[in-house]
Each structure stands twice: as structure tokens, then as C-alpha cells.
Write a protein that binds this DNA or RNA. Structure first.
Lengths: 82, 82
DNA sequence: TCACTTAATTACCGTTAGGTAATATTTTCA
DNA sequence: TGAAAATATTACCTAACGGTAATTAAGTGA
């Protein structure tokens, strides 16, 4: 599939790596720095680094804060929808 | 809106409370106990209790494990989609 | 190439997540 | 209503989250 120039609709998160990679890609696409996010989301730079690198133990509320800062939201659904 | 007997398609998670409430409701609908989940997801019962009660600091990977056990998946998307 | 920006690492450290196991409380239903 | 099942709480404990601040490394653009 050709995803070039195709706006992202949604990404299924199967692992913390998936989330980290997506957050990084999306952040960069928004031309934001890690410092921008950590400032807006009231976290340390360290948290952003760890999140983007897929740390499994990041805390949920902080993740939600970062997603909100990026204009993203989390959805739960049954497996296999598309 | 009448949601009775309407299969859940997706739930937007704006807070850890949202997630906890949804997990509980879904688990009960599946006729599973907390012990069932904690067994299958390799966590303690304590984690399930805390997750369902909306603890903000639950760790992401464990949440993903529980969702997987329930046949659910996490999706990230831009805000405001429906 | 070199200066500047951004990202990553490290040390320090108080707080706490969450496992287990025991106990208590609440819910369920025959 | 009473016993069993399910959920919640507690104590004990180790590992480690994540903030700050300083430092280092990596990336970028003129």
C-alpha cells in the first residue's frame, strides 16, 4: 500500500513500540520538538524520550496527556476492525 | 440514544476512568471474573482492580496485555473522528 | 565545516507500581 | 437469608518510574 501523502487515519497499537514510533512520526510531522511536547504535556523530557522509544512501563495517564497535546485520542475496539 | 443490545463498536478513552469503566463493563459482558483476566494476562488481581477503578498510573504494556486478553485492541487517531 | 538545535544519557532521588498472600468486604442467588 | 463467589483492601517488599539538571551525542542547515 502506498501511504505517501496519505493522511493518517488511525494506527492500531499492538505494543509500546508501536505507540512510540507513531508518536515520534506524528510529532515530527507536526514540526514539534520533544521539548515542545514535554512543556505542553507537563512532563519531563525524559518521559518523552522513553515513550517514543517504546518503554513498556510508561504510565497511562501521561500517555493520554501526550496524545492530547498532539491532538490525538485513544480508542478501544474489538480486534480486527478496520 | 438507545444502546441496549447494541454491540459496542468503539470507545474513546479520555481518561483512565473511561478505560477502567469500559474494561469492567466489557469483562462482565463476557462473563469473566477479575481472576480469569489476571490469570490469562499474567498479572496480579491487584492490577485488574486498580485498572478497572481508573488508576492513572497503570503501566501501558500491562493494559495492552489485558485488552488483548479481552479480545480488544487500542487504536490512536486524530481527535474528533466518529 | 561549524555553530545551533534537538535528542539521548546519566546521576541523584523520592515516590510508588504491582506481585503475593492473607483478610475483609460486597455481591450474587438458590 | 445465608453461604459461596467475586471484588477490594492491606501489609510486605523489590524494582523502577520519572522529575530535574547537567552532560553528551546526534542531527541539521547555511
Amino acid at each position: 500500500m502506498d501511504n505517501i501523502n496519505k493522511p493518517i487515519q488511525s494506527v492500531t497499537i499492538k505494543s509500546t513500540q508501536d505507540l512510540g514510533s507513531f508518536v515520534r512520526t506524528f510529532r515530527v510531522a507536526q514540526k514539534m520538538t520533544q521539548a515542545d511536547i514535554s512543556g505542553l504535556a507537563n512532563t519531563g523530557n525524559r518521559f518523552i524520550v522513553e515513550l517514543e522509544n517504546g518503554k513498556p512501563t510508561v504510565q497511562l495517564q501521561k500517555v493520554l496527556d501526550v496524545l492530547d497535546t498532539l491532538g490525538l485520542e485513544m480508542v478501544i475496539q474489538r480486534k480486527g476492525r478496520y
